[in-house]
Design a protein around this nucleic acid. Structure first.
Length: 505
RNA sequence: GGAGCGUUGGUCAAGGGGUUAAGACACCUCCCUUUCACGGAGGAAUCACGGGUUCGAUUCCCGUACGCUCUACCA
């Protein structure tokens, strides 16, 4: 890619709640692109809507990104030459551009109240504030100049709207979709500056992307329809040469049916949508995140990267550094992808396999301590390695190792009882005697001894193996039986056998 | 309603004028393991539909259908 400009990209979330999959992925793609091109990744807080302020949301965004390992180069927390990075703190800078547009004849004051517009929308089927209707509305285009001045002077609330010429073709190149065309006649005169003096997104992105020298602007596909407004703004204010290159990312869809994935879908279908737990400060309701559900951040990031991007080779497991090296915006898919939680778990399982037990233990340390207060650290490490390949989610380590740290509470006695014989009873008595006398308790030795003893008693291995398993773990599940016996030790093994034997008697 | 974008197996997807149309997840069968899982071997697509262009279209063009997004003083 011949890219002369310094690469500067930005992720610009609005702090209104938890960050979901799509948001994190947008951040990730921005980050990867920046790293790939030796550029800067900027985090800008888009908090221009004061009515939607949610305490804690901004902090949550930083924590989420940190967990994912995608650190901004510039942000309200990391500083940078283009501070402030919070749009509410840049409020003063927007009005001048709106005024400039008015002076240029590209924007105008509008005094219609929200109620009046609401009424219009009710009356007229497909009402749009545009060339077709603006001459019948209350604005500086229809009102005499002196009245406009009077309204402005006495503090009448107003907004500034862009003045769209009808029937103008707007065309631009999207890095993912190629040429995209729009006609201004289908657009409306978007509000640029709100009555409270804050800019809308439309003005703010353009002004800030210019101010922060953004070279590439990536955002969700939902922004595509308003892109022409942004392009016009660039053309009027800063010139098209300075405009960043656009890329509109495909949406992440719900697994069943169609439509954008929402947090409700997660609750409905039983999987996380937010990266980390998010507690709504108003309702105090907590929505589970991938982190708390037991995902490793590397797995989460890898999974996200492959949702809408691939390197073309079929490889699916990439570390963050590898992603930074391989990522290219052109290889991002055009169409939306249904989120597949099973696949997400597969990624996590893959990462669990390759992550050392010492690391896996960190995020589950508290849960382990609560579940098995007597388990030693080294025992748990050993246990993790034993059950590793059957865990897709971190909390599964607790369940999967349960019978290694405590005798099963319930024994599926019926399964043994059906085919129980005195021969088997004899066998297990001999087996406990052997265990009591041996000190070779590694799994391989135990297995050899067990098989030899079974043969001596004219019993098929399978006839006694399953009962033995059930005695140790309570049912037909778990890791290799002799690994279990070896892990829990002779005494405990004997105790568990005797316990079941008593019940069978 | 309008505009924009999209459409390859159940899902994610590679490929992109001539291919046996990769691979992964899930599912099914088998092997391994006398549990399960892991692992291994198999199994499934007339590339939305209809027209073109072409010697030849899943690939290019045009329509249609369907889906999604937007259509707020929200982002």
């Amino acid at each position: 890619m011949p890219e002369q400009k310094n690469v500067r990209v930005r992720f610009a979330p609005s702090p209104t709640g938890g960050l979901h999959l799509g948001g994190v992925r947008t951040a990730l793609f921005n980050y990867l692109f920046a790293k790939k091109h030796g550029g800067k990744f900027i985090l800008r807080i888009e908090d221009t809507d004061q009515t939607r302020f949610v305490p804690g949301a901004e902090e949550y965004i930083f924590k989420t990104l940190a967990w994912c390992g995608i650190q901004p180069d510039e942000s309200v927390q990391h500083g940078g030459d283009f501070a402030p990075y919070r749009q509410s703190e840049r409020k003063a800078s927007y009005a001048q551009y709106a005024e400039k547009l008015i002076a240029m004849g590209k924007a105008y004051y509008a005094f219609d109240t929200a109620e009046e517009l609401e009424e219009k929308r009710k009356q007229i089927p497909n009402f749009q504030y545009s060339s077709a209707t603006r001459l019948q509305l209350k604005n500086s285009l229809t009102l005499p100049a002196d009245e406009v001045q009077k309204l402005l002077a006495n503090g009448t609330p107003y907004v500034i709207r862009i003045l769209l010429e009808p029937n103008e073709d707007i065309q631009f190149t999207d890095l993912i979709r190629g040429e995209v065309h729009f006609n201004t006649s289908t657009l409306d005169d978007k509000v640029l500056l709100k009555a409270d003096g804050m800019p809308t997104y439309h003005l703010a992105v353009v002004v800030d992307d210019f101010a922060m020298q953004i070279s590439h602007a990536f955002r969700g596909e939902e922004w595509l329809p308003s892109a022409p407004v942004h392009i016009l703004l660039w053309k009027y204010l800063f010139g098209l040469e300075a405009m960043p290159q656009w890329a509109h990312l495909p949406l992440i869809l719900k697994p069943d049916g169609n439509g954008k994935l929402s947090k409700r879908d997660g609750e409905r279908l039983g999987f996380p949508v937010f990266a980390m737990d998010w507690t709504d400060p108003k309702t105090n309701e907590t929505i589970t995140g991938f982190k708390e559900r037991g995902f490793l951040p590397q797995a989460f990031v890898n999974m996200l990267a492959l949702l809408g991007w691939n390197d073309g080779t079929g490889t699916e497991i990439f570390s963050l550094p590898e992603l930074c090296e391989k990522f290219s915006i052109e290889r991002v898919t055009k169409s939306g992808a249904k989120f597949d939680y099973e696949k997400a778990k597969w990624f996590n399982a893959a990462y669990i396999q390759k992550t050392p037990a010492e690391i896996l233990t960190i995020p589950i340390a508290d849960a382990v301590a609560a579940a098995y207060p007597n388990a030693t650290y080294s025992d748990f490490l050993k246990a993790i390695n034993l059950v590793k390949d059957r865990c897709a989610l971190l909390p599964e380590f607790i369940e999967q190792t349960a019978y290694l740290f405590a005798a099963p509470k319930k024994i599926e006695i019926a399964t043994i009882q059906e085919k129980w014989t005195t021969e088997k009873n004899t066998f297990f008595e001999q087996w406990t005697d052997f265990l009591a006398s041996t000190n070779a308790i590694d799994a391989a030795n135990l297995e050899t001894a067990f098989k030899t003893l079974a043969a001596e008693n004219n019993l098929k291995i399978g006839e006694v193996m399953l009962p033995f398993r059930i005695m140790l773990v309570g049912g037909k599940f778990g890791i290799a039986v002799f690994d279990i016996a070896s892990f829990i030790g002779v005494e405990e093994t004997i105790a568990r056998i005797r316990f079941t034997l008593q019940q069978l008697a």
